[in-house]
């Protein structure tokens, strides 16, 4: 409701909260300058920190990607980028990254929505919610050890399967592609859904109960109420959850690194892992930088395409 009544603010049409002055008036202009100065003061810390600590190092990475990896590094043009045409492992890595994007965008969002909407304020519901949130708060070390327990060939999952007579289903979960990538994406969903649940809960707060009641009175069933009342109002939250999952999916590294290190062979590598491998293990910073640049272009491009559309439609 709030979103629909809010007048357009950010986006491609820079509006101003006040009516545009009809004629240039020095006093007004001074006010406008002061306003802009005030806005600058609010933005400066963020822009400065991000610019110096994050964007500047990235700029050096872009620069580095045009130099080769010999001992006396020389200008190499686009040579490092040619890896994407010749290296099979890198192509597999691109494939995996795409799988990750689909998996991390769809799974935590769908599951998070399901759990946030199915649970209510009862004690038991809260317990269920807690179950989902706990993994998010766990450190990577615990996640790695536990999931190795579960997924290794002689691990808990296969134990369980043979205990219930489904031995035929047991397999080497982390060893065969593409199963291993899919399994790790599910583990990621296990850990990441908690965030989605919380965000969606925060979004549910914003839905005025009257609109739901009104829909009920109009004879809408639960599914229709969800589809036509809840979902549209969760829009701002959905943008956050999906925007975040998109970036995290493309950058996925931690979980892969602790579970398989991109292996066996290079079967589960994503671009972020390939970049780490090239830069730090194979000691080819030029090639690593090129992968980082390509990855960043993909993340930026995907986020831009998604968010641009969302901001536009929302009119925000």
């Amino acid at each position: 409701m709030r979103t629909t009544t809010a007048p357009p603010s950010a986006g491609h049409r820079p509006p101003s909260p006040e009516p545009r002055p009809l004629r240039p008036d020095p006093a007004r202009r001074r006010v406008a300058a002061r306003e802009r100065f005030a806005a600058g003061a609010f933005m400066t810390p963020a822009v400065l920190l991000v610019g110096v600590v994050l964007l500047a190092p990235f700029a050096t990475t872009v620069y580095r990607s045009f130099f080769d990896d010999h001992r006396h590094s020389g200008f190499a043009g686009l040579h490092n980028y040619q890896l994407f045409l010749t290296d099979d492992a890198l192509l597999r890595s691109v494939e995996n990254t795409l799988l990750w994007v689909v998996g991390t965008v769809a799974l935590p969002f769908a599951l998070g929505m399901l759990i946030a909407c199915l649970t209510d304020a009862t004690r038991w519901s809260r317990f269920a919610r807690l179950c989902v949130i706990i993994p998010y708060a766990l450190s990577g070390a615990a996640v790695a050890v536990v999931w190795n327990f579960v997924l290794s060939t002689d691990g808990a999952l296969n134990q369980l399967l043979s205990a219930v007579g489904l031995e035929s289903l047991s397999t080497s979960w982390l060893l065969d592609w593409p199963g291993n990538t899919l399994v790790i994406i599910c583990v990621n969903a296990w850990q990441a859904t908690g965030v989605a649940v919380i965000l969606i809960l925060v979004g549910l707060q914003g839905i005025p109960p009257e609109t739901l009641e009104a829909a009920s009175l109009d004879g809408a069933g639960p599914w229709q109420r969800f589809r036509h009342v809840v979902l549209p109002q969760l829009r701002p939250v959905s943008i956050i959850v999906i925007g975040m999952s998109l970036a995290n999916g493309l950058k996925s590294f931690d979980l892969l690194w602790v579970l398989t290190r991109g292996g066996p062979g290079r079967a589960t590598e994503t671009l972020a892992v390939s970049m780490y491998q090239e830069t730090f293990l194979l000691q080819r910073p030029g090639a690593g930088s090129a992968i980082a640049v390509v990855l960043t272009v993909i993340v930026l491009g995907a986020s831009w395409l998604y968010l641009r559309r969302q901001f536009d439609e929302k009119g925000a």
Partner: peptide
């Protein structure tokens, strides 16, 4: 040399898991 070793470790790991 380290980069030779790193790459070969990946090949051996692919061999051990039956990929090669």
């Amino acid at each position: 040399p380290p980069s030779l070793i790193q790459g070969n470790i990946q090949d051996l790991s692919a061999f051990m898991t039956g990929q090669m």
